[in-house]
Amino acid sequence: MSRTHHRMSPTHHRRPQRAAALVASALALVCAAATGCSSASGARAESPTTYAVKEPRDAAGDAGSGRAAGRGTPATAAAPVHVSIPSIGVSSSLMRLGLNDDRTVEVPPPDKGMTAGWYTGGAVPGERGAAVIIGHNDTRFGKAVFHDLKKVRAGADIAVRDSRGKTVRFRVTGTETVDKQAFPTDKVYGSTGSRALRLITCDGAFDAQGHPVDNLIVYATAR
Rank of each mutant, 00 (worst) to 15 (best):
P184V: 04
G204I: 05
N215M: 01
P108D: 01
G36V: 06
A77R: 02
M95T: 14
A34W: 02
A116N: 04
P108I: 02
D138V: 14
I217F: 04
A19V: 12
H147M: 06
G89M: 11
G142K: 07
V107H: 12
G193N: 11
H5S: 13
L94K: 01
Y219R: 09
P16R: 10
S87R: 12
S41L: 13
S41M: 11
T73Y: 02
M8G: 11
P74D: 07
R57W: 09
V160G: 00
D207F: 04
T221N: 08
A79W: 09
A28T: 14
C202P: 06
T73K: 10
L216D: 02
R67K: 13
L199S: 08
A156C: 06
A32M: 09
D207L: 02
S93C: 09
D111I: 07
F141L: 09
Q17E: 12
M95Y: 09
A19C: 13
G135D: 02
T115E: 05
S191Y: 00
M114V: 07
T167S: 10
K112P: 00
G129H: 00
V152Q: 04
R44S: 14
G64M: 05
L197Q: 05
L97S: 07
A208G: 09
V23F: 04
R67W: 09
T49C: 11
S38H: 11
F141K: 02
S65P: 03
P10S: 14
H6E: 14
Q17R: 11
V213S: 05
R7W: 10
D58K: 06
A63T: 15
S91M: 08
T139H: 07
N100G: 07
S47L: 14
R164L: 03
G210L: 04
A26F: 08
P10R: 08
T192V: 13
S25R: 15
G72P: 02
A63C: 12
A144T: 03
E55A: 14
G42Y: 08
D162S: 05
C202Y: 03
D62C: 10
A116V: 03
G117M: 02
A116F: 03
V168K: 03
P48S: 14
E127K: 09
S2T: 15
A156N: 12
L216M: 05
R96E: 13
G129E: 00
L27W: 10
N100W: 06
A205P: 15
L149R: 06
K187I: 10
P108M: 10
I88C: 10
G190P: 03
